[in-house]
């Protein structure tokens, strides 16, 4: 089933959803948002794409197996927890780069919590994609 409406709207909506997902991921440490919600939004965009072009075509464009998203996400989250141990801080304690300013974003505050959130983001994407692609292929 290839509906023109879905294909066109996917083309329009996907970039917006993805941008929003990344914004949610970035602001997640102190404001509402975070890796989990960001990841779900991001997969919403991908699911729209799957509905538009079909799971087989979609998998050709993937540069990494969804299952590998899962494990790499877990590794990122784990390393965000373990890194502080090497500089004598507690497990999962936050490490921060010095703050700097960028034109649009304003003050940028990057540190290990963002890496942790990115890990969660990847895990969510990997999990939902695995499930959705399996269902789509079974249907």
């Amino acid at each position: 089933m290839h509906s023109v409406i879905i294909i066109l709207s996917a083309r329009l909506l996907c970039p917006i959803l993805m941008a929003m997902a990344i914004a949610f991921l970035y602001r997640g440490h102190n404001d509402p948002g975070g890796g989990f919600i960001g990841g779900l939004l991001f997969t919403a965009a991908l699911i729209l794409k799957i509905l538009a072009i079909g799971a087989e075509e979609f998998e050709k464009h993937l540069w990494m197996q969804p299952k590998n998203f899962l494990s790499s996400g877990l590794i990122m989250a784990a390393s965000a927890g373990i890194m502080p141990l090497f500089v004598g801080k507690a497990f999962l304690e936050s490490l921060w780069f010095p703050t700097f300013t960028l034109p649009i974003l304003g003050k940028v505050h990057i540190g290990s919590p963002l890496l942790f959130d990115l890990g969660v983001f990847m895990v969510v994407i990997g999990f939902v994609l695995t499930v959705v692609i399996d269902f789509e292929e079974a249907a």
């Binding site: 801080k89 507690a90 497990f91 999962l92 304690e93 936050s94």
Partner: peptide
């Protein structure tokens, strides 16, 4: 030897 051990995550 040292009694109950406690570890505080994230400090």
């Amino acid at each position: 030897s040292e009694g109950i051990q406690v570890y505080l995550n994230g400090g």
